[in-house]
Computed example of a mutant assay.
Amino acid sequence: MPKNKGKGGKNRKRGKNEADDEKRELIFKEDGQEYAQVLRMLGNGRCEAMCIDGTKRLCHIRGKMHKKVWHRRGAGVVLVGLRDYQDDKADVILKYMPDEARLLKAYGELPESTRLNEGIPGGIDEEDEGAADDYVEFEDEDIDRI
């Protein structure tokens, strides 16, 4: 019978979320970095993000965050490292928690037009922006005719 050489199953690979409750120091952008919001996940450790400077970039999620930090479209703010040789590609360095994103906006790092959608599970969707005005009001007379 073969000897087991592994160190555990899939539960070991998932790891433990020990750092979720801890407060961490707020990290601001430096030269060669930019704030962005995830537009959509593409799979294979990649996503499409809209940077604050107005450029849409294809971003690669670094290995330290892969399968440990989950991204949703429009859910929050990430810090991306820009590439010198490819302007349309970047690397996701850090995902900010919702309270950290609010602090960044309060400090003036993010423009006021940035939408922080922490509570909306679907995130940003262009078709749903005017969804609140899509209802029709009926009068009592209209209901009687139906």
Rank of each mutant, 00 (worst) to 15 (best):
N4T: 13
N4F: 04
N4P: 07
K5P: 08
G8C: 07
G9N: 13
N11Y: 10
K16S: 06
K16H: 05
N17D: 15
E18N: 13
E18D: 14
A19V: 14
D20Y: 02
D20A: 06
D20G: 03
E22K: 15
E25I: 06
E25T: 08
L26T: 11
L26V: 11
D31A: 14
D31Y: 11
G32E: 04
Q33S: 06
Q33M: 08
E34N: 12
E34L: 10
Q37I: 15
L39H: 03
M41V: 10
G43P: 07
R46G: 00
C47Y: 02
E48D: 10
A49P: 03
D53G: 02
G54D: 09
K56G: 01
R57Q: 01
L58M: 10
C59L: 04
R62H: 01
K64S: 05
M65N: 04
H66F: 12
W70G: 07
R72E: 09
A75D: 14
G76E: 14
G76H: 13
V77I: 13
V78I: 08
V80P: 02
L82P: 08
L82Y: 09
Y85T: 15
D91V: 04
I93Y: 03
D99G: 00
A101I: 00
A101L: 02
A106T: 14
P111Q: 06
E112F: 01
S113I: 10
G119R: 05
